[in-house]
């Protein structure tokens, strides 16, 4: 599925932030990435998806054997990579449902498929909105327009449900969520999880992992994965913090 080898990346005209990431994610797995602020967690998602503010210095990223780094941002997405942003943007004036449909049709065009039919899209949308307990406000407004922080995160998972990616990189999806919203979003992520789809969760807190059980937990520090383990590692981090973990200085 996703294979990251010795990934090193810098800000364009800036310092190196990722200093050799190695990560293998197989189909159906859930990986959690934790780490202190400034460790490079969000940078990792941006570099994999091709954010122009970063340049890759070395290493490779492949998805199902295909080189992702040589692809345009949109082609990476259409190949099956989905990034849920820490701070989703608002696009007033562009209807949320229209946007979802255009994005799905863009992916289908990339795959050589015809545009989705009205009936098929309506059914998919209704099913996905029901899963995430979303009301009509989400379909009548502009993309994230006037949404609260939590509503924006829920809308990100709606996009994930519609776009049906192979791998979803969810960057601090739990931030800004109240208890009920966390339960609903987690339920959505679990419902979308299957043997063919993998999820990478970036989080600071155990609370998300109480709902979405990871197979692996990794600690990212100063641009490198310095420790990996099972779900118990997250509990240990919650209790002890990061200071006890040896890392490169």
């Amino acid at each position: 599925m996703l294979s990251i080898k010795n990934l090193q990346a810098s800000l364009v005209d800036g310092p190196q932030i990722l200093r050799g990431i190695d990560l293998e994610v197989r189909p159906g797995e859930v990986h959690a990435i934790m780490g202190p602020n400034g460790a490079g967690k969000s940078t990792l998602s941006k570099v994999i998806s091709g954010h122009p503010a970063y340049k890759v210095d070395a290493g490779s990223v492949t998805l199902d054997g295909e080189d992702l780094l040589s692809k345009d941002i949109c082609d990476r997405a259409n190949s099956g990579l989905f990034i849920s942003m820490q701070y989703p943007i608002e696009i007033p004036g562009v209807n949320n449902v229209e946007f979802l449909r255009m994005a799905l049709d863009s992916k289908r065009a990339y795959q050589g498929l015809e545009k989705i039919s009205d009936e098929e899209f309506k059914a998919l949308l209704e099913k996905s909105m029901k899963l995430l307990e979303m009301d009509d406000r989400y379909s009548t407004r502009g993309v994230n327009e006037g949404f609260s922080g939590g509503e924006k995160k829920r809308n990100e998972i709606l996009q994930m449900a519609i776009l049906d990616p192979k791998i979803a990189f969810l960057d601090e999806t739990d931030s800004g969520l109240d208890i009920d919203a966390l339960r609903i979003v987690s339920h959505g992520i679990n419902a979308l999880q299957n043997n063919n789809r993998s999820v990478i969760l970036v989080t600071h807190y155990q609370r998300l992992l109480d709902y979405v059980k990871p197979n692996f937990v990794h600690v990212l520090r100063k641009g490198k994965i310095v420790l990996s383990g099972g779900p118990e590692l997250a509990l240990e981090l919650e209790q002890k913090g990061y200071d006890w973990i040896p890392g490169e200085e």
Binding site: S49, H51, P52, I73, C74, M102, S106, L163
Partner: peptide
Amino acid sequence: LDEDELFYLESRGFSAETAKLILSRSFARG
């Protein structure tokens, strides 16, 4: 056009040209 906004749209599968058009449309209609 805002670089982060363009990136957001491209990360949803829209080409750079389409992303620019969507943002311009949003700006105009807004």
